[in-house]
């Protein structure tokens, strides 16, 4: 069974220690929900899992192979949804999504995949609308449709339901359930209620270094600044 885990992860932003000694482990079909107060490092952890941010300490493994050694392979198996919606103002929704689907998997039947992704989130009627005419919620839905338009086992979602209406949240929940059913994994951060079947919960507050203290602290002697 596919396993994705991190051991003893430490995150350093600027000169501030965000969290340290963080372990997690998920398997195919799992969902890991990151909770914790603002600034506790949820987004940093997600960026770290995506490979955008290098861990200051610790390592991550995918099926017991180190992620850091095969970054291109790792990028091919993940989808990341960050704070930005990456919808180009002058391209239509369909053009936006087709581009990303092809970039992710050049052999994908992009048109069909994009059409079905748009259908899943009920935004088929927006396919030919340029990005600049979309509302915040529509942009977010387009961005979420992007990750459905190319297959990848690992979904990293940073506050995915921001700006979404109730109906869309339900659809997203259903899609996430399907994704897990098919052996996918989801790591998401949230402040709001998302219904997921028996999720694993990771409270970043357990690992976060208290705000204002932590750096230059006595028990941080192993860290050199």
């Amino acid at each position: 069974m596919t396993n994705f885990s991190g051991h003893n992860l430490t995150c350093l932003r600027g000169e501030r220690l965000v969290f340290k000694g963080l372990d997690f482990s998920i398997e195919a079909g799992d969902a890991l929900v990151l909770i914790g107060p603002n600034g506790s490092g949820k987004s940093s952890l997600l960026r770290m899992l995506a490979g955008l941010l290098k861990p200051y300490g610790g390592d991550m493994t995918w099926d017991s192979e180190s992620v850091g050694e095969e970054p291109e392979q790792h990028r091919g198996r993940l989808h990341y949804v960050g704070h930005h919606d990456c919808v180009k103002a002058v391209l239509t929704v369909e053009e936006n999504l087709t581009f990303w689907a092809r970039m992710h998997d050049k052999n994908v039947d992009a048109e069909a995949k994009v059409a079905s992704a748009l259908d899943t989130l009920s935004i088929s009627h927006l396919a030919d609308v340029p990005g600049r005419f979309l509302s915040a919620g529509q942009k977010r839905r387009a961005n979420l449709a992007r990750i459905m338009a190319a297959d990848a086992p690992l979904w990293l979602l940073d506050e995915p339901i921001t700006a979404l209406d109730k109906e869309s949240i339900t659809k997203l929940e259903r899609t996430m359930a399907d994704h897990r059913q098919n052996g996918g994994m989801i790591v998401l951060s949230t402040h709001s209620e998302i219904t997921l079947e028996n999720p694993k919960i990771l409270d970043l507050a357990d690992f976060a270094i208290g705000f204002g203290e932590g750096f230059y602290d006595d028990d941080e002697e192993d860290l050199v600044f």
Partner: peptide, 15 residues
Amino acid sequence: YEDGSLELMALTPAP
């Protein structure tokens, strides 16, 4: 960079 596309480019399998 501003609209986040750069992040996604860095995350595609292509170098």
